[in-house]
Design a protein around this nucleic acid. Structure first.
Lengths: 213, 213
DNA sequence: TAGATTGTTAATCGATTAACAATC
DNA sequence: TAGATTGTTAATCGATTAACAATC
């Protein structure tokens, strides 16, 4: 067990954004940045930026700031995106196909290994070079070809059973797009993309700003 | 200007989840629930549930709890999903098409009015009964057909100009799927679905649980 | 060296939880 | 009425911001 103090969820959720901005800066040829300049760009306080980064070590240098290239790489390592992940997608409708494409064109880092669906009319179809398999074959497939991440793009009613099969098959994380709160053992990471919840809060904010006019 | 005290973002983000669980309960024929029972189900403390709901009024009744059907309806009204929204989608690749389908099959509440793209090979194509138009026509279209919400499923580089056109065309909210932080005037609501950020934090948690084994 | 800027501790702010009087 | 459970105030907890000594 690695002795890393637990870092708050709020910090983790900001890391990808830091990395995204550092990538931009890198592309623009900027090679150093202070927490003050970074603050103006990204919209977090300088204090928060320094505090956040210091959860993982002292990446800066007094009087200089942070080296863009090196910090970008470090955050990649902290997140763990410096290695490859095998992906399996369950639910091969429109959304599943879009995610398959998204991940295949992501650049390095993700290999979409297989796609599954229960619907006979989808099984056998080709999506960006992959043939959709029957959901019933998922267990046997994972036994032979271990995967890191299971993507759930099924309907609500099938989401939990998809999760169960994926977990039984040994995946370490689930990326869930179904509007359901899945039950998974503690060892399995779960990240939800609840599109309908997101849309609902958008609508709240639309009406709030309409109200105040 | 409606005199509604500002409710914290954390509360708003929980409202759709409350509603989702109430919908389930309604379907199961449950007609009342106490904050204590609800707590066990949804995983928030009873205290938080009562506190959250009381931001919008006293929906409960001492000694009884909350009426499921009525609370479900009330939260819908608070969110503003008791009326219809016209949607325009900019970016008609895989993700845009998936979202178009998603919204068209959402049930009531959303009308996807039109879809746009810059790519000539997409323009003219048919997606679930809609013909994709050229992005250049967006301004003229919105002038004739006002829309409430603009969905941005373009690439990163086109996202800001898509946002600008949509805002100029009078939409009240943007649902942004591009990995970019858009600049929009205060009157326009903005909700981001940063898939890559979500995926990156999933990967962090996968590695953290692998570490601690 | 002097100036800039970090790393880190202390202060503040906001959100969550606990407690309990009000009341159905 | 008695019991249950809310609405709401007070206490706690955690996250953000401010301040500043350390140091490049």
């Amino acid at each position: 067990m690695k002795n890393r103090a637990r870092v708050s969820n709020a910090v983790i959720k900001r890391l990808p954004k830091y990395r995204r901005y550092l990538e931009d800066l890198k592309e623009k040829g900027v090679d150093r940045i202070s927490s003050g300049e970074f603050s103006k760009l990204i919209g977090y306080t300088a204090s928060q930026i320094r505090q956040d980064l210091n959860n993982f070590g002292g990446f800066g240098q007094q009087g200089y700031g942070y080296n863009v290239e090196s910090l970008h790489r470090q955050i990649g390592i902290i997140l763990g995106i410096d290695r490859d992940y095998g992906i399996v997608i369950v639910g091969s409708g429109n959304l599943g196909q879009a995610i398959a494409n998204y991940m295949r064109n992501y650049g390095a880092g993700f290999s979409v290994l297989a796609m599954f669906d229960v619907k006979p009319e989808l099984v056998g179809r080709r999506v960006s070079g992959l043939v959709i398999s029957d959901f019933g074959e998922l267990g046997a497939y994972l036994a032979k070809n271990p995967a890191d991440i299971g993507v759930i793009t099924t309907g609500t009613e099938s989401a939990q059973s998809a999760a169960d099969e994926l977990v039984a098959g040994g995946v370490n994380g689930l990326w869930n797009f179904a509007p359901a709160d899945l039950l998974v053992p503690g060892r399995v990471a779960l990240e939800n993309v609840h599109l309908s919840d997101s849309l609902h809060s958008l609508i709240y904010y639309i009406n709030r700003s309409l109200d105040s006019k």
